[in-house]
């Protein structure tokens, strides 16, 4: 998935029947396998070309349905249902343009951005919940058909796939039924499992978006809680002093310039990833207001002008260790 994933699992010392090393190992391997399955369906960069997204892209504009696995179908379906145009699974062509720009370190031709932008849009993506007949022997019973209506279109689930994968890995560990506690860390996406033996909350270091080597504070997390960050420091290149990162605004085709980073805490990994992308593209205060209306999420927003906004439910759960040039805004 383009990132290092670590799954750390310990046997709960208070459990009556401690799991064996082998059981632990198997649970972790099964969890990794589950993540792999998500990746195999959603990863555009998979060299083998086996990913379902690539098949969908190949059939774009032909008018044919492509049968995809359950994970990819669930993700596209969820994103489309939620309907917010800021999180768009059809940004593939646009992301390709910016990938090249990042590799060469030069700004893309505005015409190229406009051309790519024309080949994006959720309205040009159709989903079919009935698994098409020709895929009856397919490997995922909960899959479905996807069709992109214009040639040159492609899917990119980068905004949500990792958070979802972390969620599925966590479910896999839970399903093992073992008395374990641990943490799944996919870089910008984390989910905690169970409770630490000393009873303390999980402590997650929050990276300073302006200095990746440092943490600006610790976030205290409950058991079974997920967190994700979208930041302009994760993947970017700089041109004439401006940082062009990977979080693209679907209406303009350019990176969103409102915030440095947005962190979202929620019970579900998919929600954290989805909303961190969405809130990142909104003006800071609007993003905070939206988060406050959604009971399932909490957020920390670091705006472009170095202001930190924290949603009401998180205020007591952050230990600031360092704030440097940031200003904490308390509404």
């Amino acid at each position: 998935m383009g990132t290092m994933v670590s799954i750390e699992v310990h046997a709960d010392p208070k459990a009556d029947k401690a799991p064996t090393q082998n059981q632990l190992k198997e649970a972790v391997l099964a969890s990794f396998d589950r993540m792999e399955r998500v990746s195999a369906q959603t990863d555009r960069y998979e060299a083998s070309g086996a990913a379902d997204v690539q098949k969908v892209a190949a059939a774009a504009g032909t008018g044919r349905w492509t049968t995809v696995g359950d994970d990819l179908f669930y993700l596209t379906d969820q994103v489309q249902k939620r309907g917010n145009l800021l999180v768009d699974p059809t940004l593939g062509p646009l992301i390709d343009v910016w990938d090249i720009a990042r590799e060469t370190g030069t700004l893309p031709d505005p015409a190229a951005v406009a051309a790519a932008l024309a080949r994006t849009g959720m309205d040009k993506m159709a989903l079919n919940h009935e698994v098409p007949a020709e895929a009856a022997g397919g490997q995922s019973p909960n899959g479905g058909g996807i069709m992109l209506t214009e040639a040159g279109m492609s899917l990119d689930l980068g905004a949500v796939a990792k958070g979802y994968a972390v969620e599925k890995a966590w479910e896999s560990l839970q399903a093992s039924g073992l008395p374990i506690y641990g943490i799944i860390n996919a870089g910008g996406n984390i989910k905690t499992l169970g409770q630490k033996p000393d009873g303390t909350m999980w402590k997650i270091g929050i990276t300073d978006p302006t200095d990746k080597t440092r943490c600006m504070g610790n976030l205290l997390m409950l058991q079974g809680e997920a967190v994700a960050t979208s930041g302009d420091y994760q993947k970017y290149f700089e041109s004439e002093g401006i940082r062009y990162h990977h979080l693209l605004e679907p209406s303009t085709g350019y990176p969103g310039m409102e915030n440095h980073a947005v962190l979202v805490v929620a019970a579900n990994g998919f929600d954290t990833d989805y909303y961190s992308t969405l809130l990142f593209l909104l003006p800071s205060e609007e993003a905070l207001n939206l988060a406050e209306t959604l009971p399932e999420i909490e957020t920390i927003i670091v705006s472009r002008d170095n202001k930190i906004y924290v949603s009401s439910g998180l205020k007591s759960r952050i230990e600031w260790t360092y704030q440097g040039g940031f200003t904490l805004v308390t509404p």
Partner: peptide, 16 residues
């Protein structure tokens, strides 16, 4: 050189 975040060893994971 910044005081290395002494809390860093304490944390369970770092969100990047």
């Amino acid at each position: 050189t910044p005081y290395k975040n002494t809390e860093k060893e304490d944390v369970d994971a770092i969100l990047q």
